[in-house]
Measured scan of single mutants.
Amino acid sequence: EMEYEEITLERGNSGLGFSIAGGTDNPHIGDDPSIFITKIIPGGAAAQDGRLRVNDSILFVNEVDVREVTHSAAVEALKEAGSIVRLYVMRRKP
Rank of each mutant, 00 (worst) to 15 (best):
I41S: 14
G43H: 08
A73E: 12
G15C: 05
I40T: 02
T38A: 05
V61F: 14
A74G: 12
F18N: 00
G50I: 03
A45N: 12
E10F: 10
S83Y: 03
G50N: 07
S34D: 08
M2P: 00
V85T: 06
V64Y: 12
N55S: 05
G50E: 06
V54S: 13
I29Y: 13
T38W: 04
R11S: 06
E80W: 04
V75T: 13
N26E: 10
E10W: 05
G22L: 05
L87P: 00
R92C: 04
V66I: 07
E76F: 15
I37C: 04
R51Y: 15
V64Q: 11
I29W: 07
R11E: 06
D32G: 08
P27V: 07
I37K: 00
F18K: 00
T24H: 04
E5P: 10
D56V: 01
Y4R: 09
T8H: 15
M90Y: 03
T24D: 04
A46D: 01
D65M: 14
S83M: 11
D49G: 08
E63K: 14
R86Q: 06
S57G: 13
H28G: 11
D65V: 14
F36L: 12
S72Y: 12
E3T: 06
N26P: 05
D56I: 00
V89G: 01
R67Q: 08
N62I: 00
H71W: 13
P33F: 12
N62D: 14
R86G: 10
R91L: 14
E1A: 02
E3G: 07
G12P: 14
E5T: 14
N62L: 00
D32C: 07
E68I: 15
G15N: 05
E3I: 14
T70I: 14
G50W: 03
I84M: 12
P94C: 02
V61Y: 01
T38G: 05
S72F: 03
K39A: 12
S34M: 14
V75D: 04
P42M: 06
P33W: 08
G43K: 10
G30K: 11
A46P: 03
R67E: 13
V61K: 00
M2F: 04
P42I: 15
F60T: 15
A73G: 09
S19P: 01
I58Q: 00
G12Y: 14
L78K: 01
